[in-house]
């Protein structure tokens, strides 16, 4: 038998199983990656031109010690990571279970729900990283990135920001039975956070009670981390606080996802 030795082979470890699950997403991505890269570079260029260089000229004086464009670009980068996370871990995850039945197909094989989640999350991380890298390239075109180390640090900060949203989002989206519910959350949770996390203006301008809320929002931590790294004003303590907050979200999301994926894939 051709497959006999394979079947009797010792069990593959969890990471190897997750990579099997990820292979599907790579095969699928092979069909669309060129288009997504173009969008990932062109989109930030247009935004930086229109809002940073265009609208920004109306903003008087430096914001948090930088030109408006230099202030705005890393904020938008972090906010874009949130948006990408919502698409990849919200809409795509929900569709993978309900509409396209990608998860159910994988669940019929030796893959466990945890492997299927981990495999998809690895792919989402890759997508977030590539989008962030493309954005940082666009920033470099505007002279906003001083050197390669800063480019890498900012890219990783944005990837972590996206992941801090993607992980709990996936844990939740897999349980959602009706698709429009996702849109509701996008409109009433994601968009307000997008606007009030210091993306477009400094949160120090907000009245004290609102400022306290902004500081609690995960996106603000991603924005401030990306911005201080890009502007070279990052301090170790604050950066570690941001990274800790975002990592904790990833960890909590992953723990919940292990439960919800099992419940929804093996019901």
């Amino acid at each position: 038998m051709m497959l006999a030795d394979w079947r009797d082979a010792p069990r593959a470890g969890g990471l190897a199983m997750a990579f099997r699950a990820m292979a599907y997403w790579l095969v699928r991505y092979r069909r669309t990656w060129r288009g997504t890269i173009v969008v990932s570079v062109a989109n930030p260029i247009l935004f930086l031109l229109a809002i940073g260089a265009g609208l920004g000229t109306l903003v008087e004086g430096p914001v948090e010690g930088a030109s408006y464009l230099a202030f705005f670009a890393p904020g938008l980068l972090a906010a874009a990571a949130l948006q990408n996370a919502f698409v990849e871990a919200g809409f795509v995850v929900n569709s993978a279970l309900r509409r396209e039945r990608i998860y159910s197909t994988a669940a019929a094989t030796p893959l466990e729900p945890g492997h299927i989640f981990a495999g998809h999350l690895i792919f989402i991380t890759l997508r977030l990283f590539l989008s962030a890298a493309a954005f940082v390239m666009a920033m470099a075109l505007f002279g906003l990135i001083e050197n390669i180390a800063i480019a890498l640090a900012v890219t990783l900060a944005a990837t972590l920001t996206g992941l801090a949203f993607a992980t709990p989002l996936a844990a939740w989206a897999v349980t959602v039975a009706d698709f429009p519910q996702l849109n509701t959350v996008f409109r009433f949770v994601v968009m307000p956070m997008y606007l009030f996390s210091g993306t477009f203006f400094s949160v120090t301008q907000l009245p004290a009670p609102l400022r306290a809320i902004a500081y609690a929002l995960p996106l603000w931590h991603g924005v401030d981390l990306s911005r201080t790294l890009a502007l070279g004003t990052a301090t170790l303590g604050t950066s570690l606080l941001h990274i800790g907050y975002l990592t904790a979200l990833c960890a909590i999301g992953a723990m919940i996802a292990r439960i919800t994926y099992r419940r929804c894939l093996h019901e």
Binding site: L3, W6, A9, A12, A16, R20, A21, A23, Y24, V27, R28, R31, E100, R101, I102, S104, T105, A106, T109, P110, L111
Partner: peptide, 21 residues
């Protein structure tokens, strides 16, 4: 529950990879 965006062969390959082939 086939993947309609992928080719016939890709559907088989991906599924085989799930099994560790």
């Amino acid at each position: 529950s086939l993947d309609t965006q992928l080719t016939v062969e890709e559907n088989l390959v991906v599924y085989g990879l799930y099994f560790g082939l």
